[in-house]
């Protein structure tokens, strides 16, 4: 169920309060962006998805009934938008992965930045072994820490489907790691 804070924010943003909408963006943009980037693998596409998600949220706030949390609703729009981008590319398994590497990170030292880049690349290569549905499930569980019930609501699927997608995803990842002898 939606929290009072979310309900208040959503209500004010719906009534045209731009500060409230900006607050929603500040709270959820990071989450939207990192899920989109892990789903799609390209920085520009992830930014485009982020933009699309928040324009969509703004447009549909009027229809947001508060049956689920604002977070779950935004996750759902994010996953759907990411899946649409992947469908448009028509090459689900061969995503042109890029690293979500920010040049500004160089301020923390080149070595750390390179290590971070390598680590991100490993994760992206690992995730590229999964189909988009499995990727969405494992990201929402392992990265975002959502429960099965929350994943079920975010993806609009039942809990048993969540369970079976997670099982397939982990089996695939185990095989991928084994085949790459620990390089992933």
């Amino acid at each position: 169920m939606i929290s009072d804070v979310d309900l208040d924010l959503a209500g004010r943003a719906r009534d045209g309060d731009r500060d409230a909408f900006e607050e929603i963006y500040r709270q959820y943009a990071g989450m939207v962006y990192r899920v989109a980037l892990r789903m799609i693998g390209k920085v520009e596409d992830a930014e485009e998805v982020t933009q699309h998600v928040f324009l969509s949220v703004h447009r549909h706030l009027r229809t947001f009934a508060g049956k689920s949390s604002l977070k779950t609703w935004i996750y759902r729009i994010t996953i759907n938008s990411s899946l649409n981008v992947l469908k448009a590319r028509k090459k689900h398994m061969e995503v042109a992965w890029e690293e979500g590497f920010d040049p500004e990170d160089k301020r923390h030292g080149l070595r750390e930045a390179v290590e971070k880049e390598a680590s991100q690349h490993k994760i992206n290569v690992l995730l590229a072994h999964l189909n988009p549905d499995q990727r969405a499930c494992i990201l929402l569980r392992a990265q975002e820490g959502l429960s099965y019930e929350e994943i079920s609501r975010s993806l609009g699927i039942n809990v048993n489907t969540v369970r079976s997608r997670l099982k397939r995803a982990r089996e695939t990842l185990l095989v991928a790691r084994k085949e790459n002898r620990g390089a992933l």
Binding site: G30, Y33, E47, T50, I123
Partner: peptide, 8 residues
Amino acid sequence: GPLPVGPA
């Protein structure tokens, strides 16, 4: 793993 930074 290192989480991607937020959107620009």
